[in-house]
Simulated scan of single mutants.
Amino acid sequence: MTPTSPPADLRALTSLRFLAAAWVVMYTFWPDLNFGLVPVAVTKGYLGVETFFILSGFILSHVYLQAAGEKQFRYGGFLWARVARVYPLHLLTLAGVMVLGLAAVAAGMTIHGDVLSWASLPAQLTMTHAWGLAPAAGFNHPSWSISAEWFAYLAFPAFAFVAWRLRSRPWLAVAGAALFLVGLYLAFEAMAGFSLTEATFRWGALRIVPCFALGCALYLVYRRAPLKRAGLWVAGFAGAMAVSASLGAWDGITVLLAGGLILGLASMTNAGAGWLASKPAVYLGEISYSIYMVCVPWQILAVNIAARLTGAEDKRLSVGVWLVVVALLPIVAAASYHLVERPARTALRGMANRRRAAQTDTADRVNSPERVLQPSETIV
């Protein structure tokens, strides 16, 4: 069967990024809510990160796999584009938490011992703090996942090498990736005593590997032939994923269902994706990285201010105040997206484009038959 020609954009997957980020936000902010009930699905919010990891494997394969398979992949350009995507906001939030921590110390407030982990700073700056190279989480804790992503970016040629050779057997690739994920989860939990899906700065680089591989394999299925009646598959996987998370099922089940949801959403046409392809939903997906990265700095700042203003004990906010704090997060994220993330990414990619254009221009002039030789040059 001839591979399908994918659409230029997969809007439903962009919107899914916001939903995954929102799941993480609920998990992060719920302890600040003065409410007796904690839904099991909220306690599983860390699995929103697994959803991001699967999406990364799928989307990067969507963009780069064919070029990698046909030996047209520019590794340096790929890595620079990834740095332009994640590094500026990582630096901003790192600096932001650093400033908040220093301000708290200067004000005589007690902070968590790991927040200002100066020994972790070199690994933070090199995005290797989820590789077991940092003694503590330190600073903006969610950035461990960016370190894990960086590991997957560096290893992308290896993922692409395997995926390209399995492109004619996509379901075999999915089965292999699923078995690898289940086996690794079981082995890690048996040895470490806790689930790999709960690992952060010590094992984050390992945590992304099975999810990223699953995303690459699922892309092969989509590339070969998107699912028919995709809307039904999306409803089925979304419902099963919600039930799995709500019942506190083994994390591996929920993660595999998330992979199925991603394949189903990718298989939907933009016209058939409904509100998931709408401009507001896509915009929220576009700022989802900012939402994720400013989540903890905003939590530190906003919850402390709100608790002082309302006299909340133990910094646990009333439902109304808590909703305001959470609702303001996308606004703060939109500001960081438009003021930092997007301009910095554009500038860094522009630098690469100008350098590549200059190199191309130089090569053209050197190889041009009409070029006039300089006195010091000779023809060999």
Rank of each mutant, 00 (worst) to 15 (best):
S5M: 14
P7G: 13
D9G: 07
A12P: 09
S15D: 06
R17Y: 01
V24H: 02
V24L: 08
V25T: 14
Y27D: 04
P31T: 04
N34G: 10
V38R: 07
A41E: 00
V42H: 13
V42S: 02
K44A: 14
G48C: 12
V49K: 04
S56N: 03
I59F: 08
Y64T: 02
Q66G: 04
G69R: 13
K71R: 13
W80D: 01
A81L: 08
R82W: 14
R85I: 11
Y87E: 03
H90Q: 10
H90N: 07
L92E: 00
L92M: 09
V97T: 09
G101D: 00
G101C: 15
A107C: 11
G108V: 08
T110K: 08
D114I: 01
S120A: 15
T126Y: 12
H129F: 08
A130H: 05
L133G: 02
P142Y: 05
I146G: 02
I146Q: 00
F151S: 10
A152R: 09
A152Y: 02
A160W: 04
F161D: 14
W164D: 01
W171I: 07
V174M: 05
L181Y: 13
V182G: 13
V182H: 03
L196S: 06
G204E: 04
A205F: 03
L206C: 08
F212G: 01
Y222D: 05
P226T: 14
K228A: 14
W233P: 06
V234A: 07
F237H: 10
A240C: 15
A242K: 05
V243A: 15
V243L: 15
S244V: 09
A249L: 12
W250D: 07
G259M: 10
L261W: 05
L265G: 00
L265S: 00
W275S: 12
A277G: 11
E286F: 04
S290D: 02
I291Y: 05
Y292C: 01
Y292I: 00
C295Y: 12
P297C: 11
P330K: 03
I331C: 13
E341F: 07
E341W: 10
L348Q: 09
A352C: 14
N353Y: 04
R354M: 11
E377G: 10
V380C: 10
